[in-house]
Amino acid sequence: MLLPVPDEDGEPFWEYAARGELRVQACGSTNCRQLRFPPRPCCPHCGSFASRWQLMSGRGRIWSYVLPHPPLLPAYAAVAPYNVILVELSEAPRIRLAGNLVRAAGEPPNSVDPTRLRIGARVQVVFSSAGDGFALPQWQLERL
């Protein structure tokens, strides 16, 4: 399994994920408050360097997906074919997070039958312990 390599701006995302929280960086300016992802030091909307981390519901929909054949990453060769999905967050449709659709937290990325993948399917975030204090966001269908 590949572990994230957080930078200074993205480190809080991983700290919250380790606690089972999906949070997205937001502008800290009272005149803006726009959500942004990936995290960065400056708001692309207003230029403010103020920021905060807003709790998300963890709900979204599959915006896109792919089934890599052969596996693009050697660390995932044993679970190929596997899915990689792009999830549009319910509260922030401009923000899309990548991950895997799984039956339950911690399941491998090939645990869902590929015929169940559908653009627009509603999903909910779950977190899988990845060791070294990391938890990876994964996605589960809202209706199994």
Rank of each mutant, 00 (worst) to 15 (best):
M1L: 15
P4A: 06
E11M: 07
E11L: 12
F13R: 01
F13D: 04
A17W: 02
A18N: 06
R19Y: 03
A26R: 06
C27H: 05
G28D: 09
S29G: 05
S29R: 05
T30N: 13
C32G: 08
Q34H: 14
L35Y: 08
R36C: 00
P38W: 01
P38D: 10
P39Y: 12
R40K: 13
C43S: 12
H45K: 14
H45T: 15
C46L: 04
C46S: 10
F49R: 15
F49A: 12
S51G: 09
W53S: 11
Q54F: 04
L55C: 02
L55E: 01
M56T: 09
S57N: 05
W63R: 05
W63A: 12
S64E: 10
V66K: 00
L67T: 15
L67Q: 07
P70F: 02
P74F: 00
P74W: 06
A75H: 12
Y76F: 11
P81A: 03
N83G: 14
L86G: 09
E88A: 14
L89D: 05
A92N: 10
I95Y: 03
G99I: 06
V102I: 09
V102H: 02
R103V: 14
A105I: 07
P109A: 15
N110A: 01
T115Q: 10
I119W: 02
V125R: 01
V126K: 00
V126W: 01
F127M: 01
A130M: 08
G131Y: 08
F134K: 09
A135R: 04
P137I: 11
Q138W: 03
W139T: 10
Q140K: 05
Q140R: 15
R143A: 07
R143N: 08
